[in-house]
C-alpha cells in the first residue's frame, strides 16, 4: 500500500481547519505523542504543527486584464508527503525516523529519537518539527492511530484533517490502488508532486487549479437590443 493525501488546490480556501483539526487530534494523541505549545498566552506564542497552510499569489503580469486575468490567490496546505525516497529516513542515525513497509507511512519512534534535527534538515517540505518539551521530532502520522482503529466507526477511519476539511479539498487513500479515490482524482486532474526535482518521490499529490468553466453567450448576445422607447409586447400568461 502507498497511503497518502491528495490535496485540491482548486478548492482549498485556506481556512486552516485541517491544521487545527490535526493539532487537536495529535495534541493529545498517544501515537503522535503530542504537539506542544510554547507560551501560548504569551508575547510570542509558538508550537508544533504537523500541517501548515501558506497563502500565495500567482501573478499574471498584465497579459490578460480585467476579470479574466489569470491572477489567483492559492492556498497551499503542507504536511508530510510520506515520500517514497525519503531522505529524512535515510539520514536519521538512530532509525527513529522510519518508513513502514506495509503502507509507506513515515513515522518517528519517540523511544529512539535523539532530537538531533537532522531529519528535519533532510526534508524539503518543512514537514518535521521538533517537540522541544519531549525533545523528539514530530510529524504527520497520516493519523495512523485513526485509520486502522477498529474502535472508530468505519467512516471515521480517516485522517482528522480530511474529515474536518470544509471544502473536501483533502482526500486520503492508497495510491497503489489504481481504483482508489486518490488515484482516480490524481489521474483525472493531472496531479502534481511538489518540488519533485529533488527526487524524493512525494506520495501526497496536489490537484492543480482547474480551468475556469466558460459559458457561451453567443445566442444571448445575438438577441436584438431593444430601443428603450419601444413598446413592450405583452404575453398572455395566466396567473
Amino acid at each position: 500500500m502507498k497511503l497518502g493525501l491528495a490535496i485540491d488546490l482548486d478548492t482549498c480556501v485556506g481556512c486552516h481547519a485541517c491544521a487545527v483539526a490535526c493539532k487537536e487530534w495529535n495534541g493529545a494523541s498517544l501515537m503522535a505523542g503530542g504537539a506542544p505549545d510554547y507560551d501560548p498566552q504569551g508575547a510570542a506564542p509558538s508550537g508544533v504543527w504537523f500541517n501548515r497552510i501558506r497563502h500565495y499569489e500567482v501573478v499574471d503580469d498584465g497579459t490578460r486584464g480585467g476579470c479574466e486575468s489569470a491572477t489567483r490567490t492559492v492556498n497551499v496546505p503542507m504536511s508530510c508527503m510520506h515520500c517514497e525516497d525519503a531522505d529524512c529516513v535515510k539520514v536519521c542515525p538512530t532509525g527513529a525516523s522510519y518508513k513502514r513497509a506495509s503502507d509507506g507511512i513515515v513515522l518517528v519512534d519517540p523511544d529512539r529519537c535523539i532530537g538531533c534535527n537532522y531529519c528535519s534538515w533532510a526534508c524539503p517540505y518543512g514537514a518535521r518539527e521538533l517537540d522541544e518539551v519531549a525533545g523528539v521530532m514530530r510529524k504527520c502520522t497520516l493519523c495512523v492511530d485513526r485509520i486502522y482503529d477498529q474502535n472508530l466507526p468505519e467512516a471515521e477511519r480517516e485522517p482528522a484533517c480530511v474529515l474536518a476539511c470544509p471544502t473536501h479539498a483533502r482526500h486520503f487513500g492508497d495510491f497503489d490502488d489504481p481504483n482508489s479515490r486518490v488515484s482516480r482524482l490524481s489521474a483525472e486532474r493531472g496531479s502534481v508532486s511538489l518540488m519533485d526535482s529533488l527526487g524524493y518521490k512525494p506520495v501526497n499529490q496536489y490537484l492543480p487549479l482547474r480551468a475556469a468553466p466558460r459559458v457561451d453567450v453567443a445566442a444571448a448576445a445575438a438577441k436584438p437590443v431593444r430601443d428603450r422607447l419601444r413598446t413592450w409586447v405583452n404575453k398572455l400568461i395566466p396567473i
Binding site: 487545527v20 487537536e24 471515521e156 474529515l163 470544509p166
Partner: peptide, 22 residues
Amino acid sequence: RFIQGNPDHPVNRGVLCAKGSA
C-alpha cells in the same frame, strides 16, 4: 479530548472549521 464535526448534522455534515476544532 477531541471535537469533531457531526456527520449526520444538516449544517456541517461532518466537517469542522478551524475555530470549531479549537
